[in-house]
Simulated scan of single mutants.
Amino acid sequence: MITLLPVASTDIPALWELRTRALRSQCAGHYDPLTLSTWAAAPAPSTYPALLAQGGGIKAYINGELAGYAILDLESNEVDAVFGEPRFGGQGVGKCLLKALEQMAGEPAALHLYASLNAVPFYEAAGYRAMKNTQYQHPSGILLDCVFMTRT
């Protein structure tokens, strides 16, 4: 059973460690090693505390263990992050988190996001539509290939 709880700023270090494990596990076949290592080594975004203060963060637990998290920018309706702990893959954590973000945004919110290449099928299965291939200027200085997607 998946339990959802709000995210607090004090959760950021644990969430960021989970995100780094997820990147290394799930993105390896989609990005070159240098890009992936630079991306994985980047610190948590300075925007996280403000997004969490808006109430846009949710974390998932399975049997008392952190299984994933998601963050929504409630002002722009941009999905900032959906990450699942790799060992809980296939158990519906990502779907549950994404649904929680959609409920936070309210219906019929037009959500958008920049999906990493490995995540595009996940978002398509959840009803998001690929609008264009693009690159995201990551704060670490690298350009990440991604897909801009929307759900209306």
Rank of each mutant, 00 (worst) to 15 (best):
L15M: 09
L15F: 12
L18G: 05
R19Y: 05
T20K: 06
R21D: 14
A22T: 04
L23W: 05
R24G: 05
S25M: 07
S25E: 11
Q26P: 12
G29Y: 12
H30Y: 13
Y31L: 02
D32F: 03
P33H: 14
P33G: 10
L34I: 15
T35R: 08
T35H: 01
L36I: 00
T38L: 10
T38N: 01
W39M: 11
W39S: 04
A40P: 05
A40N: 08
P43L: 04
A44T: 08
P45M: 03
T47D: 14
T47L: 15
Y48L: 02
Y48W: 02
P49E: 10
A50M: 12
L51R: 11
A53F: 09
G55A: 03
G56P: 01
G56I: 12
I58M: 07
I58K: 06
K59C: 00
A60I: 05
Y61P: 06
I62T: 13
I62Q: 07
I62E: 01
G64S: 06
E65Y: 12
E65I: 11
L66Q: 03
L66F: 00
A67G: 05
Y69K: 01
Y69H: 03
Y69P: 02
A70N: 03
A70C: 02
I71R: 04
I71K: 04
L72N: 10
L72D: 00
D73V: 08
L74Q: 11
S76D: 12
